[in-house]
Amino acid sequence: MSLDAATVRRIARLARIRVDDAEVETLQSELNAILGYVEQLAEVNVEGITPLSGGAQMALRHRPDQLSDGGIAEQILANAPDRVGNFFAVPKVVE
């Protein structure tokens, strides 16, 4: 499997990273090198193997349903690049 330029652009769009034409070319060859390297996994027989998705082998711990957080709007907004009152602000979205 080898990436073409259109796929690189599609992936960049999915990842919300703006790329210019020159970057597409570089990325294409770099990504293909990585994909070429991981291609070796094709030779491993994984029939009947349960995928390992996490680093820990245990069950999920639950927390009690208690109000223990929130009420810190100012701290939540303190790092915001833009805000209107106590709202985060972004360029207007036209729906």
């Binding site: 709202f87 985060f88 602000a89 360029p91 207007k92 979205v93």
Partner: peptide, 14 residues
């Protein structure tokens, strides 16, 4: 997201 609170921006309440 609310689009009617500000003329040029959408605002977000989480």
């Amino acid at each position: 997201s609310m689009h009617d609170q500000h003329p040029a921006k959408s605002v977000i309440d989480l």
